[in-house]
Design a protein around this nucleic acid. Structure first.
Length: 190
DNA sequence: ATGATGATTAACT
DNA sequence: GTTAATCATCATG
């Protein structure tokens, strides 16, 4: 069962925590692929690391759209990262999905990634995008309908959520806006 | 084991 | 021309 738009129309940090333990799925022409979300990061509008912190541009305009849309962007020339737009229209905030635990469609993920080991399939933002067959063409897709979306799965207890600083950024690197599940082997980094 | 580097595109200075 | 919310690969200890 998909979440309603209401689920995403809340403060970004709140949504980031609530996404942990849920299922990200993509119903591709080649079959269903899905995984449990185990790591997220929040990007706030007044956060220097956020693409939207210096206003709307062609690249980041999806972040200012309705909650529940996808924001997919290209990074370092060759990789893509998948975000979920949150809070409300006109405010540029989003949650970056950093890691999944593979569930359905593992064979297809292995094919997409050219890797065998489960831990190499979805243990990083650019990796899970490849594994699920997501691309820039999914930017601004509505996750509430369509073939790409979030399914309800587990309710995570507050004490099973680890909060730390974010990864791979320069500005705002000391803010505690990264969340991941305790005791999970698939987190992207220690 | 850890650390450095190349890949390669869009947006901004 | 520089930089970026990264990853895979190569080099060294």
């Amino acid at each position: 069962m998909d979440f309603e738009r209401e689920f995403y129309a809340k403060p970004t940090v709140h949504v980031a925590k609530n996404l942990l333990g849920q299922i990200l799925y993509h119903y591709t022409p080649e079959g269903m692929v899905s995984g449990k979300i185990i790591e997220t990061e929040a990007y706030l509008q007044n956060d220097p690391a956020c693409h939207a912190s210096r206003g709307m541009t062609k690249r980041n305009e999806a972040m200012f759209g309705s909650p529940g849309l996808a924001y997919v962007y290209l990074i370092y020339g060759i990789y893509a990262c998948f975000n979920i737009v949150t809070f409300k229209e006109g405010v540029g905030e989003a949650v970056l999905i950093r890691a999944l635990e593979p569930l359905e469609g593992v064979a297809l993920m292995q094919k997409n990634r050219q890797k065998e080991k489960l831990k190499d399939l979805c243990s990083g933002p650019a990796k899970l995008v490849q594994a699920l067959g997501i691309g820039l063409e999914h930017n601004k897709q509505d996750l509430i309908k369509g073939f790409l979306g979030i399914k309800k799965r587990e309710k995570i207890k507050e004490e099973d959520i680890i909060t730390t600083t974010r990864i791979g950024i320069k500005l705002g690197a000391d803010l505690p806006l990264r969340f991941y599940l305790k005791n999970n082997e698939f987190v992207s980094k220690k």
